[in-house]
């Protein structure tokens, strides 16, 4: 189950998207997310959907791989849909016991579902096509103006890179500790909320200890390899814009224009 989370995993392929500068991908993802909230009609979402399909095709990441990441948010998705479906006032379409479904409710629920799905697909596409190192490099570069305000941009991005690297390791570890405690008769499923919370102690204590141990080891390994913060550091893969990046920015902004037009202004 835990392995299904694709968010934060890198899928290696040689594609136009993979080759783009991470800053372009970050900005485009941001624009895409904003666009999802600008759009308020179905035609707009079709434009967004087509754009997404175009990007997925270009990225050479198998669709199955992207969809697998969705499993993790099914619960959230259902919750959002149900809330919107039943709790939106408006013109009644269907009524059952104390529950009423309204026309507005259906519309809102559908929008919410589409937004969430697109949002997850869009952001997983970014993480799948960008190595976390590139991602954090991109973020570091984009946020570098904040350095002037004494924000430790390099340190923050290094922390993020490390967190991303250790997510799969810690997930695997969680799985292992869970199994080991189940083998000792632990029960993580039954009981009320308090009992359930208590049953997590045998899982969480070892997990935290392991995370601390790893952090300690890693800090030592980094120091041993002359790590001393961002000062005087060179880059193996420095970020430089190329022609394709300019084109990509162009396409991204064109998409925004389309979205605003079809999603807001255009009416049938």
């Amino acid at each position: 189950m835990l392995r299904d989370i694709t968010l934060g995993q890198y899928y290696h392929a040689d594609s136009a998207i993979h080759r783009l500068d991470p800053r372009v991908k970050l900005v485009t993802t941001l624009l895409f997310i904003v666009s999802l909230f600008i759009i308020n009609n179905f035609i707009g979402y079709i434009v967004a959907g087509l754009f997404l399909i175009f990007l997925i095709k270009l990225s050479k990441v198998p669709f199955r791989f992207i969809v697998r990441g969705m499993k993790a948010i099914v619960f959230l998705l259902v919750l959002a849909v149900v809330f919107n479906l039943f709790l939106t006032p408006g013109e009644t379409v269907f009524s059952f016991w104390k529950l009423t479904i309204t026309k507005e409710g259906i519309r809102l629920a559908a929008f919410m579902a589409i937004r969430l799905i697109f949002l997850i697909i869009g952001s997983s596409l970014m993480t799948l096509t960008t190595t976390p190192n590139q991602l954090t490099d991109g973020m570091e570069k984009l946020l570098s103006p904040l350095n002037k305000l004494h924000v430790p941009v390099h340190e923050i991005s290094m922390m993020m890179a490390i967190a991303l690297r250790f997510i799969p390791i810690l997930l695997e570890e969680t799985d292992k500790i869970m199994k080991a405690q189940i083998a000792r008769g632990a029960d993580f499923e039954s009981g009320n909320l308090i009992k359930k919370a208590k049953s997590l102690v045998p899982l969480l204590v070892p997990l935290f200890l392991s995370a601390f141990r790893r952090a300690n080891d890693l800090a030592m390994a980094m120091e041993a390899r002359c790590y001393r913060g961002g000062e005087n550091r060179t880059k193996m893969k420095p970020l430089l814009y190329h022609k394709q990046d300019a084109i990509a920015y162009g396409i991204a902004w064109l998409y925004v224009v389309f979205c605003v037009y079809f999603g807001r202004i255009f009416t049938l």
Binding site: Y10, I162, R165, A221, C226, T234, K235, M236
Partner: peptide, 26 residues
Amino acid sequence: NPDNQIIGQVVEEDVGFGPENMGVPT
């Protein structure tokens, strides 16, 4: 521990980590 000393998410990036810290040209 092999897991607790690799910083990079890609093999080559990890190997480059030390030289980066030392300020070696790209």
